[in-house]
Structure formats: structure tokens, C-alpha cells
């Protein structure tokens, strides 16, 4: 589980039937009574030394880092724009966005292409781990005392075995108002 897995591998496992979940036979033989239906599948990934979770519904694709074009007048966490098969998408350095210590791009660095509000965004993370099923009762609201710069970005915490996953609130992480650098443009000056 802690082992780094290749994005392609992982992607495959997303489209295959997950080992922790019901098999085709289960479906046919009253799977509903024996196996939980309410598990939420989350992709776990690492960023700035911590473990995060992202519902796979928000995930469109996992890719290796791609070349990006810097965009002027944007906040420091906007790496630039990337091109995913002809679609231009904003690329976000998640560590910077969460005001964590950014790690340098390495072999495990991946880009999570997420779908938010009908548009694609790229999130650069330090590495992806696995896809895990999480029951609803394992989710907890973020403790109010957590404070810190990241507090606003966190939608929930989720327990998975020994570990605690931080579930991000994409609506906050990808708030368009934060993308434009504050002092840019005439209106910003006024």
C-alpha cells in the first residue's frame, strides 16, 4: 500500500474491478446483502509529505509531468497551462497551493487531471499510491483546531487503516479568484 505505483498501473486498476470490492459473482449472488454499497473510492496521493485522498469521481486521468507554458499575472501556484490531447488546462502546483514546502519534480511526480465544474485542471503532486474504498463513517469533519494555512482547503479527514487521509475541497483549491495575481491589471491596482 505504501509502495509507489506507476500511474499507468494504477489507472488500469481503476478500470479493472478493485480487489477490495465485489466481484462479478458477488453481484449476481446477492452482493447487496453482503458487500457494502456505500464505499467511496478514493485515490491516495502524497504532497508535501502528507497523504491526501481524492474521490475518483473527480479524477479524469493520471499523467506524468508534461511540459507547461507559464502564464503571466497568475498566482505563484499556477504552474502554467498544459495541453491534454488538444485541451488546454491550467496546471496547479498543489504543494504551493496548500502553502506546503514544495518538493522538486522527481520520478514519482504525477499530474492528476481532475474534473471540476465541467473543466479539467492539472494538479501536480509528489506521487500517487493507490485506490482505496472508504466507508462513510470513516470520514470526519476537519477539526476546527487544525488551523494552519491549509484549513480552508480541507473538506474532511478520512481514516484508512493506520493512516489519515486529507480530503481536499476542490471548490476551494480551484477557486478561480485565487488564480489571478492580486496586483495584476488596472482593476487590481485601484
Amino acid at each position: 500500500m505504501a509502495r509507489e505505483r506507476d500511474a499507468e498501473d494504477l489507472w488500469q486498476s481503476l478500470s479493472r474491478s478493485g480487489e477490495a470490492l465485489a466481484t462479478e459473482e458477488d453481484y449476481e449472488h446477492g452482493y447487496s446483502r453482503e458487500v457494502r454499497q456505500d464505499l467511496r473510492r478514493c485515490l491516495t496521493f502524497r504532497c508535501g509529505g502528507e497523504l491526501y485522498g481524492l474521490s475518483i469521481h473527480d479524477l479524469a486521468e493520471i499523467t506524468k509531468p508534461m511540459s507547461t507554458t507559464p502564464v503571466p499575472r497568475t498566482a505563484d501556484f499556477v504552474v502554467g497551462i498544459g495541453n491534454v490531447r488538444g485541451t488546454v488546462i491550467p496546471m496547479v502546483d498543489l504543494a504551493r497551493r496548500l502553502r506546503l514546502v514544495a518538493r522538486r519534480t522527481g520520478t514519482s511526480t504525477r499530474v492528476l487531471i481532475v474534473n471540476h465544474g465541467g473543466e479539467l485542471y492539472g494538479l501536480v503532486v509528489d506521487g500517487v499510491h493507490d485506490v482505496v474504498p472508504i466507508p462513510p463513517e470513516a470520514f470526519e469533519p476537519p477539526p476546527g483546531a487544525l488551523g494552519g494555512a491549509r484549513a480552508g482547503f480541507i473538506a474532511a479527514l478520512a481514516r484508512h487503516g493506520e493512516e489519515i487521509l486529507i480530503i481536499l475541497d476542490l471548490a476551494v483549491v480551484l477557486d478561480p479568484r485565487d488564480f489571478v495575481r492580486g496586483d495584476a491589471g488596472p482593476r487590481g491596482r485601484a
Binding site: V71, I81, G86, V88, G117
Partner: peptide, 26 residues
């Protein structure tokens, strides 16, 4: 090409385009 709603409001930038060789420019 559209650069998405998050970047749409950047003053002075109308969009992006591909220049061949996979280069995306503003």
C-alpha cells in the same frame, strides 16, 4: 483555445493556441 474559466479573467490574455510540435502558447 480556451484556457479555462480560472484563467479567463487574466487581463491581457485572450486564450491559448498550439503552434505545432506540441507547443502551447498564449
Amino acid at each position: 483555445k480556451s484556457i479555462g474559466s480560472a484563467l479567463r479573467s487574466i487581463p491581457g490574455i485572450a486564450g491559448a493556441t498550439e503552434l505545432g510540435g506540441g507547443r502551447t502558447v498564449l
